[in-house]
Design a protein around this nucleic acid. Sequence first.
DNA 1: TTCTTAAAGGAGAATTATTATCTTTGCCTA
DNA 2: TAGGCAAAGATAATAATTCTCCTTTAAGAA
Lengths: 144, 144
Amino acid sequence: MTDIFRTRLQEKQLKVTPQRVAIYEAICKLNNHPTAENIIDYIRKNHPNISVATVYKVLDCLTENNLIKKVKTERDIMRYDAMMHSHHHLYCSDTDRIEDYEDENLDKLITNYFRKKKIKNFNIKEIKLQISGKFKSKKNKFEI
Amino acid sequence: MTDIFRTRLQEKQLKVTPQRVAIYEAICKLNNHPTAENIIDYIRKNHPNISVATVYKVLDCLTENNLIKKVKTERDIMRYDAMMHSHHHLYCSDTDRIEDYEDENLDKLITNYFRKKKIKNFNIKEIKLQISGKFKSKKNKFEI
DNA sequence: TTCTTAAAGGAGAATTATTATCTTTGCCTA
DNA sequence: TAGGCAAAGATAATAATTCTCCTTTAAGAA
Protein backbone atom coordinates (compact mmCIF):
# COMPACT_ATOMS: atom_id res chain seq x y z
CA MET A 1 0.00 0.00 0.00
CA THR A 2 2.54 2.60 1.03
CA ASP A 3 5.03 0.94 -1.32
CA ILE A 4 2.84 1.94 -4.22
CA PHE A 5 2.70 5.41 -2.74
CA ARG A 6 6.48 5.60 -2.46
CA THR A 7 6.86 4.51 -6.04
CA ARG A 8 4.37 7.06 -7.26
CA LEU A 9 6.27 9.81 -5.45
CA GLN A 10 9.52 8.73 -7.06
CA GLU A 11 7.91 8.57 -10.49
CA LYS A 12 6.97 12.21 -10.06
CA GLN A 13 10.49 13.13 -8.87
CA LEU A 14 9.16 13.91 -5.42
CA LYS A 15 11.17 12.99 -2.37
CA VAL A 16 9.93 10.18 -0.19
CA THR A 17 9.84 11.73 3.27
CA PRO A 18 8.52 10.28 6.52
CA GLN A 19 6.03 13.16 6.73
CA ARG A 20 4.55 12.44 3.32
CA VAL A 21 4.23 8.77 4.05
CA ALA A 22 2.65 9.43 7.45
CA ILE A 23 0.12 11.85 6.00
CA TYR A 24 -0.83 9.47 3.23
CA GLU A 25 -1.22 6.61 5.69
CA ALA A 26 -3.34 8.79 7.94
CA ILE A 27 -5.77 9.58 5.13
CA CYS A 28 -6.05 5.88 4.32
CA LYS A 29 -6.61 4.85 7.92
CA LEU A 30 -8.99 7.67 8.77
CA ASN A 31 -11.25 6.58 6.00
CA ASN A 32 -14.04 9.05 6.49
CA HIS A 33 -12.51 11.83 4.42
CA PRO A 34 -10.56 13.56 7.17
CA THR A 35 -9.90 17.26 7.54
CA ALA A 36 -6.37 18.64 7.87
CA GLU A 37 -7.00 18.85 11.59
CA ASN A 38 -8.05 15.21 11.82
CA ILE A 39 -4.88 14.25 10.00
CA ILE A 40 -2.68 16.36 12.28
CA ASP A 41 -4.26 14.87 15.41
CA TYR A 42 -3.80 11.36 14.10
CA ILE A 43 -0.21 11.81 12.98
CA ARG A 44 0.97 13.54 16.14
CA LYS A 45 0.49 10.31 18.08
CA ASN A 46 3.50 8.80 16.34
CA HIS A 47 5.07 11.90 14.89
CA PRO A 48 4.66 14.60 17.55
CA ASN A 49 6.76 17.30 15.92
CA ILE A 50 5.11 17.54 12.55
CA SER A 51 4.21 21.11 11.68
CA VAL A 52 0.78 22.30 10.67
CA ALA A 53 2.34 24.07 7.70
CA THR A 54 3.96 20.83 6.57
CA VAL A 55 0.65 19.02 6.63
CA TYR A 56 -0.99 21.67 4.49
CA LYS A 57 1.96 21.76 2.12
CA VAL A 58 2.01 17.98 1.76
CA LEU A 59 -1.75 17.86 1.20
CA ASP A 60 -1.42 20.45 -1.56
CA CYS A 61 1.50 18.67 -3.10
CA LEU A 62 -0.26 15.29 -3.11
CA THR A 63 -3.39 16.84 -4.54
CA GLU A 64 -1.51 18.53 -7.35
CA ASN A 65 0.21 15.28 -8.17
CA ASN A 66 -3.03 13.29 -8.16
CA LEU A 67 -2.14 11.12 -5.22
CA ILE A 68 -5.10 12.25 -3.12
CA LYS A 69 -8.23 14.27 -3.78
CA LYS A 70 -9.90 17.21 -2.14
CA VAL A 71 -13.48 16.64 -1.06
CA LYS A 72 -15.97 19.40 -0.44
CA THR A 73 -19.08 19.40 1.68
CA GLU A 74 -21.57 22.10 2.55
CA ARG A 75 -19.39 23.15 5.44
CA ASP A 76 -16.32 25.19 4.80
CA ILE A 77 -13.48 22.93 5.83
CA MET A 78 -11.53 21.06 3.20
CA ARG A 79 -11.42 17.27 3.45
CA TYR A 80 -9.23 14.70 1.75
CA ASP A 81 -9.65 11.30 0.14
CA ALA A 82 -7.02 8.73 -0.78
CA MET A 83 -9.27 6.89 -3.20
CA MET A 84 -8.18 8.04 -6.61
CA HIS A 85 -10.36 6.19 -9.08
CA SER A 86 -13.58 7.95 -9.95
CA HIS A 87 -16.35 7.34 -7.46
CA HIS A 88 -19.41 8.94 -5.98
CA HIS A 89 -20.26 10.19 -2.51
CA LEU A 90 -23.06 9.51 -0.10
CA TYR A 91 -23.43 12.55 2.08
CA CYS A 92 -25.48 13.32 5.17
CA SER A 93 -25.59 17.06 5.82
CA ASP A 94 -26.89 16.58 9.37
CA THR A 95 -23.74 14.77 10.48
CA ASP A 96 -21.34 15.81 7.70
CA ARG A 97 -20.59 12.13 7.18
CA ILE A 98 -19.34 11.07 3.76
CA GLU A 99 -19.00 7.55 2.39
CA ASP A 100 -17.66 6.49 -0.95
CA TYR A 101 -20.05 4.88 -3.36
CA GLU A 102 -19.03 2.87 -6.39
CA ASP A 103 -21.45 1.52 -8.96
CA GLU A 104 -20.26 0.35 -12.35
CA ASN A 105 -23.73 -0.15 -13.73
CA LEU A 106 -24.69 3.37 -12.82
CA ASP A 107 -21.52 4.70 -14.41
CA LYS A 108 -22.27 2.80 -17.61
CA LEU A 109 -25.81 4.10 -17.67
CA ILE A 110 -24.68 7.71 -17.34
CA THR A 111 -21.77 7.36 -19.75
CA ASN A 112 -24.11 5.91 -22.34
CA TYR A 113 -26.59 8.68 -21.80
CA PHE A 114 -23.98 11.36 -22.46
CA ARG A 115 -22.56 9.43 -25.39
CA LYS A 116 -25.86 10.05 -27.16
CA LYS A 117 -26.68 13.45 -25.70
CA LYS A 118 -23.96 16.09 -25.85
CA ILE A 119 -24.03 19.16 -23.64
CA LYS A 120 -23.86 22.29 -25.73
CA ASN A 121 -20.68 24.29 -25.13
CA PHE A 122 -19.10 21.79 -22.73
CA ASN A 123 -16.65 18.89 -22.93
CA ILE A 124 -17.20 16.40 -20.13
CA LYS A 125 -14.15 15.03 -18.35
CA GLU A 126 -15.69 13.41 -15.31
CA ILE A 127 -19.08 12.95 -13.70
CA LYS A 128 -19.53 12.55 -9.98
CA LEU A 129 -22.76 12.11 -8.07
CA GLN A 130 -23.38 13.74 -4.74
CA ILE A 131 -26.07 11.57 -3.23
CA SER A 132 -27.54 13.36 -0.24
CA GLY A 133 -29.67 11.75 2.41
CA LYS A 134 -29.40 9.94 5.70
CA PHE A 135 -27.40 6.93 6.84
CA LYS A 136 -29.36 4.25 8.64
CA SER A 137 -26.58 3.05 10.97
CA LYS A 138 -23.62 4.39 12.91
CA LYS A 139 -20.10 4.83 11.68
CA ASN A 140 -17.40 2.23 12.25
CA LYS A 141 -14.60 2.75 14.72
CA PHE A 142 -12.09 4.22 12.28
CA GLU A 143 -14.34 6.94 11.09
CA ILE A 144 -14.44 10.37 12.61
CA MET B 1 -39.11 38.18 -9.96
CA THR B 2 -38.38 40.17 -6.81
CA ASP B 3 -42.10 40.26 -6.14
CA ILE B 4 -42.04 36.52 -5.65
CA PHE B 5 -39.04 36.99 -3.40
CA ARG B 6 -40.84 39.60 -1.31
CA THR B 7 -43.81 37.31 -0.95
CA ARG B 8 -41.64 34.39 0.09
CA LEU B 9 -40.00 36.55 2.77
CA GLN B 10 -43.38 37.58 4.10
CA GLU B 11 -44.63 34.00 4.13
CA LYS B 12 -41.71 33.14 6.39
CA GLN B 13 -42.42 36.15 8.64
CA LEU B 14 -39.18 37.78 7.57
CA LYS B 15 -39.02 41.50 7.00
CA VAL B 16 -38.70 42.77 3.46
CA THR B 17 -35.70 45.09 3.68
CA PRO B 18 -33.89 46.94 0.88
CA GLN B 19 -30.71 45.06 1.79
CA ARG B 20 -32.35 41.65 1.43
CA VAL B 21 -33.90 42.57 -1.88
CA ALA B 22 -30.64 44.02 -3.17
CA ILE B 23 -28.68 40.91 -2.20
CA TYR B 24 -31.20 38.61 -3.80
CA GLU B 25 -31.22 40.69 -6.98
CA ALA B 26 -27.43 40.67 -7.05
CA ILE B 27 -27.31 36.87 -6.93
CA CYS B 28 -29.82 36.68 -9.78
CA LYS B 29 -28.02 39.22 -11.93
CA LEU B 30 -24.53 37.87 -11.23
CA ASN B 31 -25.60 34.51 -12.49
CA ASN B 32 -22.29 32.72 -12.21
CA HIS B 33 -22.74 31.68 -8.61
CA PRO B 34 -21.15 34.73 -6.97
CA THR B 35 -19.11 34.83 -3.79
CA ALA B 36 -20.03 37.10 -0.90
CA GLU B 37 -17.36 39.48 -2.14
CA ASN B 38 -18.79 39.57 -5.67
CA ILE B 39 -22.17 40.38 -4.16
CA ILE B 40 -20.78 43.15 -1.97
CA ASP B 41 -18.96 44.74 -4.91
CA TYR B 42 -22.05 44.62 -7.05
CA ILE B 43 -24.41 46.00 -4.42
CA ARG B 44 -22.15 48.84 -3.34
CA LYS B 45 -22.67 50.53 -6.71
CA ASN B 46 -26.22 51.40 -5.76
CA HIS B 47 -26.09 50.80 -2.05
CA PRO B 48 -22.68 52.08 -0.93
CA ASN B 49 -23.15 51.75 2.82
CA ILE B 50 -24.13 48.13 3.10
CA SER B 51 -22.07 46.29 5.70
CA VAL B 52 -20.10 43.14 5.06
CA ALA B 53 -21.69 41.61 8.13
CA THR B 54 -25.15 42.34 6.79
CA VAL B 55 -24.37 40.58 3.55
CA TYR B 56 -23.19 37.46 5.36
CA LYS B 57 -26.15 37.55 7.71
CA VAL B 58 -28.62 37.94 4.88
CA LEU B 59 -26.96 35.13 2.91
CA ASP B 60 -27.23 32.86 5.93
CA CYS B 61 -30.78 33.85 6.56
CA LEU B 62 -31.82 33.25 2.95
CA THR B 63 -30.02 29.92 2.88
CA GLU B 64 -31.73 28.74 6.06
CA ASN B 65 -35.07 29.74 4.65
CA ASN B 66 -34.46 27.99 1.33
CA LEU B 67 -34.50 31.12 -0.76
CA ILE B 68 -30.96 30.63 -2.07
CA LYS B 69 -28.40 27.81 -1.97
CA LYS B 70 -24.77 27.56 -1.01
CA VAL B 71 -22.45 26.18 -3.67
CA LYS B 72 -18.92 24.92 -3.14
CA THR B 73 -16.16 24.35 -5.63
CA GLU B 74 -12.66 23.02 -5.22
CA ARG B 75 -11.56 26.43 -4.02
CA ASP B 76 -12.46 27.40 -0.53
CA ILE B 77 -14.77 30.34 -0.89
CA MET B 78 -18.50 29.87 -0.50
CA ARG B 79 -20.66 30.78 -3.45
CA TYR B 80 -24.39 31.30 -3.80
CA ASP B 81 -27.11 30.33 -6.23
CA ALA B 82 -30.62 31.72 -6.57
CA MET B 83 -31.92 28.71 -8.48
CA MET B 84 -33.83 26.65 -5.99
CA HIS B 85 -35.20 23.67 -7.86
CA SER B 86 -32.91 20.68 -8.03
CA HIS B 87 -30.32 20.94 -10.78
CA HIS B 88 -26.83 19.87 -11.70
CA HIS B 89 -23.60 21.79 -12.19
CA LEU B 90 -21.13 22.03 -15.02
CA TYR B 91 -17.79 22.94 -13.53
CA CYS B 92 -14.42 23.90 -14.97
CA SER B 93 -11.70 23.69 -12.34
CA ASP B 94 -9.24 25.69 -14.47
CA THR B 95 -11.42 28.78 -14.38
CA ASP B 96 -13.67 27.97 -11.41
CA ARG B 97 -16.63 28.67 -13.66
CA ILE B 98 -19.94 27.03 -12.79
CA GLU B 99 -23.06 26.78 -14.92
CA ASP B 100 -26.36 25.24 -14.01
CA TYR B 101 -27.48 22.20 -15.95
CA GLU B 102 -31.01 20.86 -16.05
CA ASP B 103 -32.01 17.64 -17.73
CA GLU B 104 -35.32 16.00 -16.98
CA ASN B 105 -34.57 12.88 -18.96
CA LEU B 106 -31.36 12.34 -17.07
CA ASP B 107 -33.17 12.86 -13.77
CA LYS B 108 -35.77 10.28 -14.74
CA LEU B 109 -33.09 7.80 -15.77
CA ILE B 110 -31.30 8.11 -12.45
CA THR B 111 -34.46 8.13 -10.35
CA ASN B 112 -35.58 4.96 -12.07
CA TYR B 113 -32.23 3.35 -11.53
CA PHE B 114 -32.37 3.97 -7.79
CA ARG B 115 -36.01 2.95 -7.62
CA LYS B 116 -34.86 -0.55 -8.53
CA LYS B 117 -31.50 -0.57 -6.82
CA LYS B 118 -31.39 0.52 -3.20
CA ILE B 119 -28.19 1.63 -1.51
CA LYS B 120 -27.55 -0.43 1.59
CA ASN B 121 -27.69 1.63 4.77
CA PHE B 122 -28.71 4.88 3.09
CA ASN B 123 -31.93 6.75 2.33
CA ILE B 124 -31.59 9.00 -0.69
CA LYS B 125 -33.05 12.48 -0.49
CA GLU B 126 -31.48 14.19 -3.47
CA ILE B 127 -28.99 13.41 -6.24
CA LYS B 128 -26.87 16.07 -7.86
CA LEU B 129 -24.29 15.62 -10.60
CA GLN B 130 -21.03 17.50 -10.63
CA ILE B 131 -20.05 17.39 -14.29
CA SER B 132 -16.41 18.46 -14.60
CA GLY B 133 -14.72 19.47 -17.80
CA LYS B 134 -14.11 22.47 -19.98
CA PHE B 135 -16.37 25.09 -21.48
CA LYS B 136 -15.92 25.70 -25.19
CA SER B 137 -16.81 29.41 -25.21
CA LYS B 138 -16.45 32.48 -23.05
CA LYS B 139 -18.78 33.66 -20.37
CA ASN B 140 -21.49 36.19 -21.06
CA LYS B 141 -21.25 39.74 -19.83
CA PHE B 142 -23.04 39.25 -16.54
CA GLU B 143 -20.81 36.51 -15.35
CA ILE B 144 -17.76 37.06 -13.23
C1' DT C 1 30.86 7.03 2.72
C1' DT C 2 30.93 11.77 2.24
C1' DC C 3 29.59 15.81 -0.38
C1' DT C 4 26.38 18.75 -2.64
C1' DT C 5 22.25 20.93 -3.26
C1' DA C 6 17.65 21.45 -4.36
C1' DA C 7 13.69 20.03 -2.10
C1' DA C 8 11.23 19.65 1.92
C1' DG C 9 10.22 20.51 6.84
C1' DG C 10 9.48 23.53 11.03
C1' DA C 11 7.94 27.65 13.67
C1' DG C 12 5.31 31.19 13.96
C1' DA C 13 3.44 35.42 11.77
C1' DA C 14 0.19 36.93 8.38
C1' DT C 15 -3.85 36.58 5.70
C1' DT C 16 -8.58 36.19 4.76
C1' DA C 17 -13.30 34.53 4.73
C1' DT C 18 -16.52 34.28 8.02
C1' DT C 19 -18.72 34.92 12.63
C1' DA C 20 -19.66 37.20 16.98
C1' DT C 21 -20.62 41.18 19.71
C1' DC C 22 -22.52 45.26 20.56
C1' DT C 23 -24.86 49.50 19.17
C1' DT C 24 -28.07 51.88 16.34
C1' DT C 25 -31.91 52.23 13.26
C1' DG C 26 -36.48 51.86 11.64
C1' DC C 27 -40.95 50.07 11.92
C1' DC C 28 -45.18 48.47 14.16
C1' DT C 29 -48.39 48.77 17.90
C1' DA C 30 -50.23 50.57 22.03
C1' DT D 1 -44.85 59.53 21.71
C1' DA D 2 -42.94 55.39 23.87
C1' DG D 3 -41.79 50.57 23.91
C1' DG D 4 -40.44 46.42 21.72
C1' DC D 5 -38.15 43.96 18.32
C1' DA D 6 -36.04 42.48 14.12
C1' DA D 7 -32.56 43.80 11.28
C1' DA D 8 -28.53 46.71 9.86
C1' DG D 9 -24.02 48.61 10.78
C1' DA D 10 -19.29 48.80 12.66
C1' DT D 11 -15.73 46.50 14.24
C1' DA D 12 -13.37 42.96 16.88
C1' DA D 13 -12.63 38.10 17.04
C1' DT D 14 -12.03 33.55 15.14
C1' DA D 15 -10.14 29.89 12.59
C1' DA D 16 -8.55 27.60 8.50
C1' DT D 17 -5.07 28.19 5.51
C1' DT D 18 -0.92 30.37 3.51
C1' DC D 19 3.38 32.81 3.74
C1' DT D 20 8.07 33.90 5.21
C1' DC D 21 12.22 32.71 6.62
C1' DC D 22 15.36 29.72 8.17
C1' DT D 23 17.02 24.86 9.04
C1' DT D 24 17.19 20.12 7.88
C1' DT D 25 17.10 16.21 4.90
C1' DA D 26 16.79 12.96 0.86
C1' DA D 27 19.10 11.31 -2.87
C1' DG D 28 22.30 11.41 -6.55
C1' DA D 29 27.34 12.28 -7.57
C1' DA D 30 32.03 11.88 -6.40
